[in-house]
Design a protein around this nucleic acid. Structure first.
Lengths: 199, 199
DNA sequence: AGCTCGATGTATCAGTCCGATACATCGGCA
DNA sequence: TGCCGATGTATCGGACTGATACATCGAGCT
């Protein structure tokens, strides 16, 4: 029930919402979704899956043979899928735009599921994230001023680069927020591509 | 003995190399040096300090009364300082430009001490870091191609942004490497006649 | 067919690290 | 004077990682 695992639970629920998966594939996609921000090992995935089963949000679905084919000692490929409760819970989590949603570890996952998030929540999370990063910019600036002359060129360069990166992140968020605001009352101008099957 | 703590040991040694410090101040500076990349709690700092003392690289220096002021029950402000062995060990670590030096967690710390690192080592670490990031760029590109049409616009944007960030990091390294190369030939003769690849 | 090898797949554990917390001292300040 | 936040040392429960073990599968090689 760590705060950490709530991110993980959210991500698992979100991935299983799209399609049932087994652990191995789940981990791969998880590392790709939150991958840019964090890694994940089985040591946390499996306990998380067990907790989710215990909570009744997912079920283990062992793909037994389609018809009465004799299957005895064979067991692998445990496929996990969402229950109705799980879907409901995921919807609740999607709408949760609390301060936790724009922390470093959580923001990426929330963003990854933005397509299923309503516009108001999206905007609130993006703005929360932005002000979080603006605080950090202030911190960097203060550190730069504090250490400007008693520090060597390399340390200075490192701090300068860090500051640049965060500022760049803020600009990115500004563009996204602009896009959200514009898209809010012009929904289908530059819509989210919904042409899935037209390859 | 953990690989993790080696970063921490390196950073502590480096900070104490500049001036003796006590734990509280040490933690603050540590979080500012590796802060852009990682955080650090006392739960790992104090065990690390103990390990360093045990290894004979630092000593606890309790600032007892300057003159014979009888202070018995008073204890706080344990100041840590490098020993001769510690200085030597730090020099060894400075020259170590192995693959570990350009991993995410280690690069920042190594860079922070570049002012004490010799030019050859600096260059090797920067180039190692660059090729590490170029691998990651390839990974991102592959992920983008793999998922281009079966993923929603937000996930796509997240991946695109991740790719941009890493590419930007590579450009930063390119500038630094250029700077190193240019500054190098006032040191002494340098026979890098063979030009590296030109992209 | 036998054999190896890497990818797929489930599962656990020792060790490491973080967040919270407990204490204690110090300097302001109302 | 008493309160409060910053400084300061220290520990612990619990979360998480990296390593590892074990098993199955398909593909290529001989």
């Amino acid at each position: 029930m760590g705060k950490r695992s709530s991110v993980l639970e959210f991500a698992v629920l979100g991935l299983l919402h799209e399609s049932p998966l087994h652990g191995y594939e789940l981990r791969k996609r998880l590392n790709s979704v939150l991958g840019s921000f964090r890694a994940l090992s089985y040591g946390s995935l499996y306990p998380c899956l067990k907790a989710l089963v215990r909570a009744g949000w997912i079920v283990e679905d062992e793909p037994t043979d389609p018809v009465g084919t004799a299957r005895s000692g064979k067991r692998s490929k445990i496929v996990y899928k969402l229950t109705a409760d799980g879907k409901e819970h995921f919807q609740t989590l999607l709408g949760d735009a609390g301060p936790a949603a724009w922390e470093d570890e959580n923001f990426g996952v929330h963003f990854a599921f933005f397509a299923r998030t309503d516009a108001t929540t999206r905007l609130r999370i993006l703005e929360g994230r932005r002000s979080r990063l603006e605080e950090r910019v202030e911190g960097f600036r203060a550190a730069l001023l504090r250490t400007r002359e008693r520090v060597d060129a390399y340390t200075l360069e490192l701090q300068r680069h860090g500051l640049d990166s965060v500022e760049r992140e803020v600009r990115w968020l500004n563009e996204l927020i602009d896009g959200e605001r514009r898209g809010q009352h012009d929904q289908h101008h530059e819509s989210t591509g919904t042409t899935d099957q037209s390859t």
